[in-house]
């Protein structure tokens, strides 16, 4: 396994982790399988496109000739994607969580409503922007830098770095803030949380916004190599969902480990001569099915011993 392959695997893993952790976190804290996560991805992509085209020329002239221009451009695009993603998370909260969260069978209803939001959003994007794939304003071009003797493409370095920072901030927030404590309490025992005065409605809002922001970040980072299109969210949604399942639905560390596994598997499958890129999905699903047969609760069963 050469170094470039490892970088490619990390790059994929980073994007997958952003999607899967969002899905996993939502499921374990408010009990909703968010099928509209892919729509958040696509909306954030288009939001970034619109904002980027409007703002970046001004930024370019303002910081003309600066060495850090690329970083500033990336920061602007990321901020746009994160912001739009968080806003769309809010929309999902208002449409799919608030009206039905205390009705019977919320898990199934929530899945249906978010799936409807997903379809409606993709159709709206198709109608407004058309089916044509569009490229985000490029940030770095296709240059490379050499880190520790390993050649890394700029966009890969940015993806891995930005993901590490974003996930670090999100996990630290979950671990050390008061809101994070309330969210974790709610994840582990909703009734105990209610009896501690923790309201699901008030706690769900920041979770929806943060997971939406993660999907938005994933959209911006992936769109450096893949184009923005109305259906762009489908594949990240499916992969995020199966990785969350593999990790043990609801476990954040499990999702992170699973994302690393699947990212690496995808990178390795791509270079094996008789498998190649077109067999990637087959190998991934086969692997996940195999793991779930052996460990029905996913990887997280290995990681945390104290569950009810």
């Amino acid at each position: 396994m050469d170094a470039a392959l490892i970088v490619y695997a990390l790059n994929l893993s980073a994007i997958y982790a952003l999607m899967a952790i969002g899905i996993s976190l939502l499921w374990s804290s408010i009990g909703m399988l968010n099928m509209a996560h892919g729509a958040t991805f696509a909306v954030a992509g288009y939001g970034t496109l619109v904002i980027g085209n409007a703002v970046l020329p001004g930024i370019d002239s303002l910081f003309h000739g600066w060495a850090a221009l690329g970083v500033i451009r990336l920061a602007v695009l990321l901020a746009a994607g994160v912001g739009v993603g968080a806003l769309f998370g809010l929309v999902i909260y208002l449409l799919a969580f608030l009206p039905i969260h205390d009705k019977a069978n919320f898990a199934v209803r929530g899945m249906i409503v978010t799936l409807a939001i997903n379809l409606a959003t993709v159709q709206t994007l198709l109608w407004w922007f058309g089916p044509r794939q569009q490229a985000l304003p490029s940030v770095f071009g296709f240059g490379r830098l050499t880190l520790l003797g390993i050649p890394v493409r700029y966009d890969q370095a940015a993806t891995i770095g930005a993901t590490a920072v974003l996930l670090g901030v999100a996990l630290a927030w979950l671990r050390y803030s008061r809101k994070g404590l309330e969210i974790r309490a709610m994840m582990q025992n909703p009734e105990g949380a209610a009896l501690s005065g923790i309201s699901v409605r008030r706690t769900a809002l920041p979770v929806m916004a943060v997971t939406g922001a993660m999907a938005g970040a994933a959209a911006v980072l992936l769109s450096q190599t893949v184009y923005v299109s109305p259906g762009a969210g489908a594949m990240p949604l499916i992969k995020g969902m199966i990785i969350a399942l593999l990790g043990g639905l609801g476990s954040v560390p499990g999702a992170a480990v699973a994302a690393l596994l699947i990212g690496t598997l995808e990178a390795v499958t791509g270079v094996i001569p008789f498998l190649g890129q077109r067999m990637v999905l087959l190998v991934q699903f086969g692997f996940i099915i195999l793991v779930l047969i052996v460990r029905p609760r996913g990887i997280s069963g290995l990681l945390d011993e104290t569950r009810k």
Binding site: L181, Q188, N189, E191, G192, A193, L195, I198
Partner: peptide, 22 residues
């Protein structure tokens, strides 16, 4: 409540902090 409704993954300290809602 009956059965304590504890949060199995939190420490005793975090647990008590959860109760301090006001």
């Amino acid at each position: 409540p009956q059965g304590d409704a504890i949060f199995p993954g939190l420490t005793v300290r975090q647990h008590l902090d959860c109760g301090a809602w006001s």
